[in-house]
Structure formats: structure tokens, C-alpha cells
Computed example of a mutant assay.
Amino acid sequence: MRIRPFSTKARALGLLSLAVLGAGSFAEAGTAAASPALGHYGAKPIHQQAQPAARAQATVSNTLSVDSAGTQGVVSPKPKVYLVFWGSQWSKDPAGVAPDLQNMFKGLYGSKDTWGTILDQYCEGVAKGTTTCGTSGTHVTHPSSTPLAGTWFDKTAAAPTNATAAQIAAEATKAAAHFGNTTQAPNLNAQYVVVSATGTHPDGFPSSGFCAWHDFTTSSYGKLAYTNLPYVPDTGAGGCTTFTDGRLLSGLESTETHEYAETVTDFWPSIGWNGGNGEIGDECENMDAYVTLSTGTFDLQGLWSNSANKCVTKG
């Protein structure tokens, strides 16, 4: 289980001391306190500290191994991202989250994207416990065109102010129907990023101690991989990133690249790639880098590379 809590210590415990909340911009939000939703994955702390350079580059014993010999749902061989901006509350987007996420994913492909090439060393269809795929199995393929397969502003009704995990999963299922992915086949690569609007508190955010999480749900269209992505800029500049330059969207980008990479490499958690400290992004949550893509410069979180045996920001 990997809920992305406020601190490294809280991550290890799997829950958050609410004393941390007093330092955040949501101290007066008035939402009910909640412990992290058990069973969800890929959690990241809201307030972080950058690793010293020596530590960030040091060899760490966190080799990822595959947890299943399965040929489906272990990784996403050809990643496709569907952004779902949930609720009529998206008439307001003060931080510019919607255009920023679209631009980031529109640039995550090809030769300019050296970050995404970290992922293609991981595969499915190999023996459980494998740590090096080599030429075996079906590898994650680095996209040759944008992985952004669709964007939907679902403004038909207001999203719940305090959405439950079940309601978030139901929105992902609704999105699968909207995009026409109504069989398991297209949903072997589709990930639905359910993005909540400013002022909402999906699954207790931020009191439940995460920037975002990912999981899968079972539907009449097969198993669906999805992400619960709150309105991260509501935490203020510096939330969910190690950067302290005051850029409001950095934490959003760091969080979503964390979740994207973990969904790609542990598609139906947790039968994919995991190590002693969790999924591919968990070990490296204190490493951020500004990476220039064809569509702009974005804060991409470091990922664990078995081939390099350390956290890296490029393959």
C-alpha cells in the first residue's frame, strides 16, 4: 500500500498526524479528518525537503521486482492518458491547472522527453521476482507521439465537495464510457486521471495526508486504472514539490508525473513493479527536476531506475 502522505515518516506508517495540517493553507478548511484510504497506491507527501545532492545520487537498495508473471495489468505497454476535469466547479481554475496538465502530457514523448525513457526498462510477461527484463517480456514503449488520448470537462453537475474513493472510481468508469473504451482491450493501456476542482476535498484531501493516489476499479468495461488528482495548488507554492521558488504549478506536475509513472509500471496495483520502499516514484519523492519538453518546462519527479540503481530524472 502506498498512500502519498505528508512526510516520509508518515509514509512508512501509512497515516498522517493531523498536527502537520496546521502549517498548511487548508488549516481552516473545515473538512472532516480522515486517515488515508487503505488500499490505494502511489501517495506523495505535501511538504517535502530536497535531498542533498550526494544522497540523491547515492546507490539505494530499492531494486524493483515484478510481483506477477501475468501478461495483462502488470504494466501499461503503450500508455494512454485521459484527463477528466470533474464537475461544474471547473468554471474556475485560478492556477491554470487544466492547460498546464494538457501541455505537460502533450510533450511527454519523443526525443525531447528523456524522463519518460526511464520507464521502458520495465515489462510484463516475465517470471515473478524478475528485476531485469532484458529482451524478455512486453516492455513499456516510450511514446512516439503524445500519450494524451483525450480530455473531458465533465461539467454536467457539480462534483461532490468531499468525494469518496468510490465516487472517484465511478467518475473514472463514466469517463471510460465517454471516451468509448467499453471493453477491456483499450483499458489495458488507458489511465483515467480524475482531476478535482479548486476548493474540493476528494477522499479527504488534504486532511488525509496525500497529494494524490492511483488505483484500479472493476467495471463492466473491465478493470480500469485511475488516479485521484486533487487541486494541488490549493496547498500553496511548495506543496508536493521540493522546489522553493514559489512556482505554484510545480507541485501539481511533480505529483502527476509520480502517479503517471507508477500507473505505467504498476498498472493494477500491486501486481507490477515494487521494491522495499514502494513503487517507482516512492523512493524518489524528494527528487524534482525542471525538464524542458517541446511544450514547455515542467517539474518532473525523479523515478527509481533498476538499470542505474538509483533515482534519476532521465533515462
Score class of each variant (00 low, 15 high):
5 P>D: 14
14 G>E: 03
19 A>R: 11
23 A>F: 14
26 F>N: 12
32 A>I: 14
37 A>Y: 13
40 H>C: 09
42 G>I: 02
45 P>G: 13
49 Q>V: 12
54 A>E: 13
54 A>V: 13
58 A>N: 08
60 V>A: 10
62 N>P: 06
62 N>C: 08
64 L>D: 04
69 A>D: 12
73 G>P: 00
79 P>V: 02
80 K>A: 07
81 V>N: 04
89 Q>W: 11
92 K>R: 08
92 K>H: 06
100 D>E: 13
101 L>A: 03
105 F>E: 14
107 G>L: 02
117 T>M: 13
118 I>C: 04
122 Y>M: 07
133 C>R: 03
133 C>T: 11
134 G>P: 07
141 T>S: 13
141 T>V: 11
147 P>G: 06
150 G>E: 03
154 D>G: 10
155 K>A: 14
155 K>N: 15
157 A>G: 05
162 N>G: 10
166 A>F: 03
166 A>K: 04
173 T>W: 13
177 A>C: 08
178 H>G: 05
181 N>D: 14
193 V>L: 12
194 V>C: 05
194 V>S: 01
199 G>N: 06
207 S>W: 10
209 G>N: 05
211 C>G: 09
218 T>N: 09
225 A>C: 11
234 D>N: 07
236 G>Y: 10
238 G>S: 10
238 G>D: 14
242 T>K: 01
243 F>V: 09
247 R>E: 08
249 L>K: 00
249 L>E: 00
252 L>P: 02
253 E>G: 10
255 T>Y: 00
256 E>W: 03
257 T>I: 08
260 Y>K: 02
267 F>M: 02
267 F>K: 00
274 N>L: 11
275 G>H: 06
278 G>Q: 04
281 G>M: 01
286 N>M: 13
288 D>V: 05
289 A>R: 04
291 V>K: 05
291 V>N: 05
297 T>W: 12
305 S>T: 15
